[in-house]
């Protein structure tokens, strides 16, 4: 009655997305928290865009970009010989963009909270920038990372619009939980819809409860 594959696809998508976001989000957040460059505001705004944009808008442009004629899709086809649209990889790209603010913002906030003064102290004691980041900034940003990971993961699990636009709802490949609920409701299979929905509801509540109890200050702001 309950299929396992949407759950697995969702977890796989959220895990990979969160890992990629940590890899690109950490340096980006670090740069944003340190720079006095004028482009900071521009980058911050772009990162925050998914917070205000209807997912369909993002999905629509991604659909265009990922298609074999699109800028990214064409390039992808060229290097991997597989189309990007309606593929799991395409879904990952969309999720990374869509969940970006939920990882970058808490990290940036926690880096800013560590602040310059401690880093300066470390510098005068012989620690270079990387040493300082590794031994002072990272350990003091543990909470920020925890918040970023949980929010990034949870938000990817909960995304609907973007996935609907670019995923294609292919079972065992791109069919995620939020979509299958929609499918069940559409054909009036409310019992199945209930199972998945209750599961997601409980999951989301636990995630938010944990994150909020760790730190409110690091929550996503707009």
């Amino acid at each position: 009655m309950i299929e396992l594959s949407p759950i697995l696809v969702t977890l796989k998508l959220a895990t990979i997305t969160t890992l990629i976001l940590l890899l690109i989000g950490t340096p980006l957040a670090w740069w944003l928290s340190n720079t006095s460059s004028k482009s900071k505001v521009v980058i911050e705004s772009i990162v925050a865009l998914p917070l205000v944009l209807p997912p369909t808008v993002l999905g629509f442009y991604l659909l265009l970009a990922l298609s074999p004629d699109g800028f990214i899709g064409h390039f992808w086809l060229y290097i991997s010989n597989t189309p990007l649209s309606f593929s799991f990889s395409g879904l990952v790209i969309g999720s990374v963009l869509y969940s970006m603010p939920f990882v970058v913002q808490p990290l940036q906030a926690s880096f800013e909270m560590v602040g310059k003064p401690l880093q300066q102290a470390a510098n005068t004691l012989g620690a270079n920038s990387f040493d300082t980041f590794k031994n002072i900034v990272l350990p003091l940003s543990k909470r920020g990372f925890l918040v970023a990971i949980t929010l990034g993961f949870a938000h990817t699990v909960g995304e609907f619009g973007v996935v609907l636009m670019i995923g294609g709802n292919i079972p065992e490949v791109t069919q995620v939980l939020s979509i299958i609920i929609y499918d069940h409701v559409e054909v009036l299979e409310y019992t199945q819809a209930h199972y998945y929905s209750i599961g997601l509801l409980v999951f989301s509540f636990i995630v938010l409860f944990v994150t909020y109890s760790f730190n409110r200050k690091l929550m996503v702001r707009l």
């Binding site: 401690l118 005068t124 004691l125 012989g126 003091l140």
Partner: peptide, 18 residues
Amino acid sequence: QPWFRNIAYVFQDHRLFP
């Protein structure tokens, strides 16, 4: 670079690593 200067600094606000 500051980390090669060999100049130690005691700040007004101690700046110990918490």
